[in-house]
Design a binder for these strands. Structure first.
Lengths: 231, 231
DNA sequence: TCTAATCTGTGATATGTATCACAAAACTCT
DNA sequence: AGAGTTTTGTGATACATATCACAGATTAGA
C-alpha cells in the first residue's frame, strides 16, 4: 500500500515521532490518513467536535479566532513537523479555534480517540507530548508578555524574529521568510492594524534592519533587529 | 508519621490526584514534602533551575514576570488544588517565571525528576496531566484573545469574571471574591494602569454591577456583568 | 498610637495607535 | 491582456488609555 508508506514517511518527519521505531510507529500509521488541502481551505471550525489531530507534513496553516465584528486574531502559524490542536487530549468538546490553510498543505489526520489509546500504551510518546505541550505553554506565556509589556513597534519586531526562527531559511548570513504574509495577516497575528504594520515595516527598512524584496519576502538580520528592543 | 499523613490528606484535595487509590498515591507522597510560605515570600525566581513542582493546598500564589523597567506582569493567580509550573515536565531549564505568595500558603513540594518517573508508570496520571495542560493552553489562548480583541473596560470585566469563577464564593446569589487584590495587582494581571482599573471599577459600581465593600472585597452579579461585554 | 508607607480617586495632559480616506501598486481570474 | 479585486502607503484626525500630579484615605510597622 503506497499510501500507508507515504504516511509513514511523513510521520517520521514529525518531531513528536522521531526516534520511534518502525514497530512503535505502526499503530499510529494504521489509524491515520493523509490529505492535501489547498490554500484558503478551512480545516475545521471552532464549533466542530474535536475528534481528530493533525500533523503537518508540508505547507502552512493558521489557527485563528474571529469576534462578532469579524475582527480576526491569528493564534498561531504552524508549519511542517507541527501538530494541532494542542489542547484536545483526553478532553471532550470542540476545537478551541478555527484552522485554515495559508499555503497548500499535506496533512496527516489521526482520530484523537485512537491516538489517545496508543498514547497511554507508549510512555516514550507521552514524554514527548508533555514536552511539546510544555513548549506551547511557554510560548503562549511569552506571547502574552510581549502583548502586555511592549509597544507595537517592538511587537512587530518580535513577530518578525519569531517568524524568522520558524519559517526562516539562512542564506549567506541573512534570514529569509519564504512565506508571503500580507500586512493585514501580520497585523492580525499581534492584534494591531495593517496601517501600523505597514508604517513599522517601512521604518525598519529605512534603518536597513529588514529588506522587502519584490516577491514580498522579508530579509532580516536578526541580531541587529533584536537590539531595537529596548524595553 | 503525622507529616506524611498530612501530605496525603493535602494531595487528595488536588484534582490531578483525585480518584487515585491510596496505593497509587503512595509513591508521590513518599517523595513530597509540605511547607508553609508566608505572604510575600518568594517561592522561586525565573533563573532558578526547574527541579520541582508545587501543589497548592491552601493560600494564593501569583506567577509573574518583570521587565527591565520593573514593570510587572502577573501571568496567573493560583489557589488551592492547582499545580505550578505547568511547563516543566520532561524539559530541562529554568522556571518560566517568578512565583510569590499573595496569601499565606501551604504547598506540597515534589522533585520533578521523581515525579516524572512515577508519571510514566501511571497512565491514569498522564491522562489527567494532559487534561490539565490542555486546559492551561486553552486558558492562555483565551487570555491572549481578550488582550487583543477587547478594550480595557471589557478586559477588567473579564478579569473580574475570571476571578469570581475561581476565587469566588456564592452567598445568596452574589459572588464574593474573598481575596483582596489592590488595583495595582488587578492592573498588572491585564497589563493596564492602576488608575484605569480604579476608574473602571467605580464605573461598574455606579452601574450597580459590582460592589466594593469596606474590607475591599468585590461583590459581583456575574450574569449582568457579562452583558456589558458587547464586542 | 503615632509615623511612614502604600493605596485610592480624580482631574489635566500627553501620546501611541486605531480609524478614515484615498490614490497607486500589485495581484487574480477568465 | 484587461477588469476587478485586494493590498499597500501615507496623511489627517479621533480616541482610548498611559502618564503626571496631588490630596485624602487606608494600612502596616515601630
Amino acid at each position: 500500500m503506497l499510501k500507508k508508506e507515504d504516511i509513514k514517511k511523513h510521520l517520521q518527519t514529525v518531531p513528536l515521532f522521531k526516534e520511534l521505531s518502525d514497530k512503535e510507529l505502526q499503530p499510529i500509521i494504521s489509524i491515520s490518513s493523509s490529505r492535501i488541502y489547498n490554500a484558503r481551505s478551512i480545516i475545521f471550525m471552532q464549533e466542530e467536535p474535536l475528534d481528530r489531530v493533525f500533523f503537518i507534513h508540508s505547507g502552512i496553516v493558521k489557527i485563528y479566532k474571529t469576534d462578532a465584528t469579524g475582527k480576526e486574531q491569528i493564534v498561531s502559524v504552524l508549519e511542517d513537523g507541527e501538530m494541532f490542536p494542542h489542547a484536545g487530549f483526553f478532553r471532550q468538546g470542540t476545537f478551541p479555534a478555527n484552522a485554515e490553510v495559508i499555503k497548500k498543505a499535506q496533512l496527516i489526520v489521526t482520530p484523537i480517540k485512537d491516538f489517545e489509546k496508543i498514547l497511554i500504551q507508549h510512555p516514550e510518546l507521552c514524554i514527548k507530548l508533555f514536552r511539546v505541550l510544555g513548549g506551547k505553554i511557554v510560548d503562549l506565556q511569552n506571547r502574552l508578555e510581549e502583548k502586555i509589556l511592549h509597544n507595537t513597534y517592538e511587537q512587530v519586531i518580535m513577530l518578525l524574529l519569531r517568524l524568522t526562527k520558524s519559517n526562516g531559511e539562512k542564506h549567506e548570513n541573512l534570514y529569509k521568510i519564504t512565506t508571503h504574509f500580507t500586512n493585514r495577516e501580520l497585523a492580525n497575528m499581534i492584534g494591531t492594524s495593517r496601517e501600523t504594520v505597514s508604517r513599522t515595516l517601512n521604518q525598519l527598512r529605512k534603518k536597513d534592519l529588514i529588506g522587502l524584496d519584490a516577491e514580498g519576502f522579508y530579509v532580516i538580520d536578526p541580531d541587529k533587529l533584536k537590539e531595537e528592543i529596548i524595553h
